[in-house]
Write a protein that binds this DNA or RNA. Structure first.
Length: 640
RNA sequence: GCCCCCUUAGCUCAGCGGUAGAGCAACUGAUUUGUAAUCAGUAGGUCGGCGGUUCAAAUCCGUCAGGGGGCUCCA
């Protein structure tokens, strides 16, 4: 007998157990909800299934639905039940892989031309629940490579055969649940009882192993929950997210549109341009005060330049080409080569470095038609790009500066939750090992000095240098990659960039590519979804809308408008002959942050009735001067 | 690019083999309005384009275009 230490919901208790009994046995004896609330367990070695023998483990943290790992196990087991339900209706379907994902799970299946349609979802769901509520017990069985291969050869499933062939021969396991058997490494639930609600979400094409040269499979996405209420809650969340879709808001708020005359190329409407320009002016001011200089380089440049930069060789598929006077030219997909040309216009000394050149550069990239998505993935966009030319010794302090800058920019939009990733030297790289080591050390030192929490992605850097990526979470906890900082040892060499050092010799500068927002287009998309279209006052295309109670007060409304104009505020007056209620409704739908109602009282007293959307308050009889002064105060952009 | 789904009035959508509908918006008129929709009228569409099946196509089939969900989060 061994004494187990069990942690469940913050409480610790002990239980006696034998090493050759499954973990659920002592839990049951202790009256713990094993296989219902307790879904799985964790030891220092990782996930320990409830049905797995205890062995020499003595400390278990019991995991329930609130644990990320337990959810993964839950969904992984759900994927098996889903596959079983699907095989019930499509017995000839060939299974491939079915992992849990961030929100739910999927199974990639080869239906050989007889795939389900969304109309099939309900019966799949019904069958799923029949199976899960039997319930089915998940039994792990170690099999030999021969047995595994024989099993799937008999089923004529080349995908599983391929997977098995890559597995170590002494570590192959099947999981059996009901009549269903699947090659799987686990871990799984003890049984499917807790899986009480399921929703098949969508179908998608997915290439075997993500490679477009491979056969295309049908991916069935689904999500399951321990209760119907949780499923409904999740569906509500999806609806909420759908309402915040920036494509919808772009239309509702009249900011931008897309048309078949220019697929992937956004058309910006007047209000969208106010937003775009306000954002750009704000960032421009901030950068100019942070030691940057602005440049603008041509959109079309000779093809020779792209051959020199390496883009022609590595990035041609994504580029647009044209001709000028019979010579080949290309539309720029990136701004960096242009920046190097500006660098080269003078003989640079170490005293000139770091030289920080920024460009709100419009780049064009040929993205595959299938990946275009609103403002998130477009074929032309404006990067908040910059290139910092510096000496290797300056890398660390430049990165430190950048980290501060990035932080202050994200804070300005309320993106408090951030993730930072450091990607290091990949297998294929250029430049000396020494330079790489120095660069990586500089990045790490800067991150640590700034007290930034980060994760390392080993080998994930670009071939020309290591990088730091920034990901923010929006108000719905969705992750968006925005900024990136990339060190580049390659391009300065390719373009023959030089500076004269203290030693009088010429040296090659290091180039830091960096974007903070990424692109203005995409960032506006993210911001819209983050705020649900409730833009902060300083960015709102219309900051205040003046609503005359009736035509009689148009004169006074005009007067108020003139004052707003003088005060430099963005306003609109509702000249329609609708009743006040309707004017309010429309102004609210347009998500105008401030509504000023003017009628007899106001005209007489020189006041406005202020309806503040952001505060959800109303205040009558505010003197016009005071209202304007207060608004001017509130529309200030976050300090630069 | 590939797979599945979608495309009907400016917008949101109904109609799904018998020759086009609603609400909102627009326009006209009446109403002169006090914090989330005043009333009445008018106009608006070769039902995404092209081709086919059919006596008959928005509706069925093909094709092209555009849009949406996806395309390693690896047994």
């Amino acid at each position: 007998m061994a004494l187990l230490t069990l942690r469940w919901q913050g409480k610790i208790q002990q239980a006696e157990a034998k090493p050759d009994e499954p973990l659920y046995a002592p839990l049951q004896r202790s009256g713990l909800p094993a296989g219902t609330e307790i879904l799985t367990a964790r030891t220092s070695k990782g996930i320990h299934e409830l049905q797995a023998l205890i062995g020499d483990a003595t400390e278990f943290e019991l995991l329930g639905w609130d644990s990320h790992e337990a959810k993964s196990v839950f969904w992984h087991s759900s994927a098996h039940i889903l596959a079983e339900a699907i095989l019930h209706f499509w017995p000839k379907a060939k299974l491939t892989i079915g992992p849990p994902i961030e929100n739910g799970f999927y199974y990639d299946i080869d239906f050989a031309g007889d795939a389900p349609t969304p109309e099939d979802f309900p019966r799949i769901e019904r069958r799923f629940l029949e199976l899960s509520q039997q319930p089915e017990y998940f039994v792990r069985r170690k099999v030999s490579k021969e047995e595994a291969l024989a099993h799937y050869t008999a089923l004529q499933n080349p995908y599983k055969v391929e997977l098995i062939q890559e597995l170590p021969p002494d570590d192959i396991t099947f999981y059996e649940s009901g009549d269903f058997v699947d090659l799987c490494k686990g871990p799984h639930l003890w049984h499917s009882g807790p899986i009480k609600a399921v929703k098949v979400l969508s179908l998608a094409g997915a290439y075997w192993r993500g490679d477009s040269r491979n056969p295309q499979l049908t991916r069935v996405y689904a999500i399951s929950f321990p209760s119907q209420a949780l499923l409904e809650e999740h569906l509500r969340l999806l609806e909420e997210a759908a309402k915040r879709d920036h494509r919808l808001l772009g239309k509702q708020l009249d900011l931008f549109s897309f048309h078949e005359e220019g697929p992937g190329f956004p058309f910006w409407h007047p209000k969208g341009m106010v937003l775009m320009n306000t954002l750009q002016e704000w960032l421009r001011r901030k950068l100019l005060r942070s030691g940057y200089h602005e440049i603008k380089t041509p959109i079309i440049l000779t093809q020779r330049l792209w051959e020199q930069s390496g883009h022609y060789e590595n990035y041609r598929e994504n580029m647009y080409f044209t001709q000028i006077d019979e010579a080949p030219f290309a539309v720029k997909p990136m701004n960096c080569p242009g920046s190097t040309i500006v660098y080269r216009t003078q003989l640079r000394s170490y005293r000139d470095l770091p030289l920080r050149l920024f460009e709100f550069g419009l780049v064009h990239r040929h993205e595959l038609s299938g990946v275009l998505t609103g403002l998130f993935r477009v074929r032309a966009f404006t990067q908040d790009d910059a290139h910092i030319f510096c000496t290797p010794e300056q890398i660390q302090s430049e990165i430190a500066n950048l980290l501060r800058l990035v932080e202050s920019v994200y804070n300005a939009f309320g993106f408090q939750q951030r993730e930072v990733y450091l990607s290091t030297r990949p297998e294929k790289y250029i430049g000396s090992l020494e330079l790489w080591n120095q660069a990586e050390a500089s990045l790490e030192a800067a991150l640590q000095a700034a007290g930034v929490l980060y994760q390392v992605n080993p080998g994930d850097g670009a071939f020309y240098g290591p990088k730091i990526d920034f990901i923010v979470r929006d108000s719905l906890q969705r992750r968006w990659q925005l900024g990136t900082i990339q060190l580049d040892f390659s391009m300065p060499r390719r373009f023959g960039l030089e500076y004269v050092g203290t030693d009088g010799q010429t040296h090659v500068p290091v180039m830091i590519h960096r974007a903070i927002l990424g692109s203005f287009e995409r960032f506006i998309g993210v911001l819209l979804e983050h705020t649900g279209g409730e833009l902060p006052l300083w960015l709102a295309p219309v900051q205040v809308k003046v609503l005359p109670v009736s035509d009689k007060f148009l004169g006074y409304a005009q007067e108020v408008a003139q004052r707003l104009e003088k005060a430099g505020l963005r306003y609109e007056v509702d000249f329609s002959q609708e009743k006040l209620g309707k004017k309010i409704l429309f102004a609210e739908q347009e998500k105008v942050p401030m509504i000023w109602v003017v009628g007899a009282k106001e005209a007489e007293q020189g006041t406005v009735a202020v309806r503040d959307r952001t505060q959800r308050t109303q205040e009558e009889g505010v003197p016009l001067d005071a209202a304007i002064a207060a608004l001017q105060e509130k529309v200030q952009s976050p300090h630069v």
